[in-house]
Amino acid sequence: MARVKHLVILDSFKLLQIKFPYIHWPLGWNKICTLLERCTHDIQVTAIQWQKPPDSWVKINTDGSALNNPGRIEAGGILRNQNGELILAFSVPLGQGTNNQAEIEAANFGLAWCMQLNYRNVILEVDSQLLADWFNSRAAVPWTILTQL
Rank of each mutant, 00 (worst) to 15 (best):
G95C: 10
Q129D: 10
G64K: 05
I87N: 03
L131Y: 03
L15H: 09
P21C: 02
I87E: 02
D133V: 05
L131W: 02
G64A: 11
L111S: 07
N121H: 14
P142V: 05
A106M: 06
N81C: 03
S12N: 10
H24Y: 05
L86E: 00
P54C: 06
N68Y: 10
V141K: 13
P70E: 06
L7N: 10
P142G: 14
S137K: 14
T62I: 03
C114A: 13
T34W: 04
I104E: 02
L7A: 13
G97S: 09
Q96L: 07
G97W: 09
I48K: 00
E37Q: 14
D42F: 12
A2Y: 07
G84A: 05
T98W: 14
S91N: 10
D63Q: 01
G28T: 02
V45H: 13
K19P: 01
V126G: 05
F90K: 02
A102P: 05
R72E: 07
N61G: 06
T40A: 08
S91M: 03
Q96D: 09
T46R: 13
Y119F: 15
R72L: 04
L67Y: 13
T46S: 10
W143F: 13
K19G: 03
A107L: 07
Y22Q: 15
P70K: 11
F135H: 09
L130D: 04
L117G: 08
I23V: 14
F90L: 06
G71Y: 13
L35C: 11
S65L: 09
V8T: 10
G97E: 09
W50G: 00
A132F: 05
A2T: 13
K59G: 00
A140M: 11
V4S: 12
C39M: 13
K14R: 14
G28I: 00
D127C: 04
L79F: 03
M1S: 12
Q82H: 14
A47T: 09
M1F: 15
I18N: 06
K14V: 07
M1A: 12
I104K: 03
I43V: 15
N81I: 04
D63A: 01
G76A: 06
R38Q: 14
G77D: 01
L35Y: 14
I87K: 05
T98C: 09
N81L: 04
A66D: 04
T144M: 14
Q51D: 08
R120V: 13
F135E: 03
L149S: 11
E37P: 07
E103N: 05
Q96N: 12
